[in-house]
């Protein structure tokens, strides 16, 4: 059964006097537990797709169903609940709260989630148990991104949505982050959707979606995705 279903989804933005279609009549289904990579050039609509899926934005028309629930017509508060319970985000720029320690940044999700995972366990998993009392500014970029992953997973969400998670990192650290991300997602049986420019990441995905000008040009199911180590970074 598909976890995510886009049914004739469009998203239009008003730019000046005219409407601009960021997504145009998209149909898409993603199964639970899959690792999905969305590729495409700038303006292809991939970030819009991720935002709609994450409940950060709502479609102009069409329906988005996640885990059997239509999220396209939810109110602001219902969307907040959806983000709190169903979605874990990993951003390119980490977006950690600078005034909270590593531990507190991850613990933050306990304030809003009904079924969170152990914060200490998450920090162990990402290898930052020894840094839990540090502030984000005391960590490297890679370490900050690992905190971000721990925070996303600590919510115990259905899926992880990642927007260019390795975009701000060097290739070695990027590979490490992907390894952490993938292994944790597999361990905890989470669906991962990654938006990226990086073609190499696509080699590791179960599903690769190529977007262009607001349309899905191609959807490829890869039966034998490569592991992080197998990809030439």
């Amino acid at each position: 059964m598909s976890l995510i279903k886009f049914d004739k989804v469009s998203r239009e933005y008003k730019v000046g006097d005219h409407e601009q279609k960021a997504l145009d009549n998209i149909d898409l289904e993603i199964e639970e537990g899959k690792f999905v990579v969305i590729l495409g050039p700038s303006g292809a609509g991939k970030s819009t797709l991720l935002n709609l899926l994450g409940g950060l934005d709502s479609p102009t028309s069409g329906t988005i169903t996640v885990n059997g629930n239509d999220i396209s017509k939810l109110s602001n508060d219902e969307l907040a609940d959806y983000r709190a319970e169903t979605v874990g985000f990993v951003f390119q720029s980490y977006n950690l709260i600078p005034t909270l320690t590593v531990f507190e940044n991850v613990s933050l999700v306990k304030e809003i989630t009904s079924n969170p995972l152990s914060v200490n366990e998450m920090l162990e998993e990402v290898g930052l148990a020894d840094h839990k009392d540090k502030f984000p500014s005391e960590l490297s970029g890679g370490e900050q991104q690992r905190v971000s992953i721990a925070r996303a997973l600590a919510k115990n969400p259905k899926m992880l949505l990642c927007d260019e998670p390795t975009g701000a990192l060097d290739s070695e650290t990027g590979a490490l982050i992907l390894k952490v991300l993938l292994s944790m997602a597999r361990n905890y049986k989470k669906t991962i959707v990654i938006v990226t420019h990086n073609q190499n990441i696509a080699k590791m995905a179960d599903v690769v979606i190529r977007a262009k000008s607001g349309h899905i040009k191609e959807l490829i199911n890869q039966d034998n995705p490569l592991s992080v180590e197998e990809v030439d970074w």
Partner: peptide
């Protein structure tokens, strides 16, 4: 920071 909280799931 406020945007982050909102994205994470905090209500207005």
């Amino acid at each position: 920071e406020l945007s982050t909280l909102k994205v994470v799931g905090f209500k207005d």
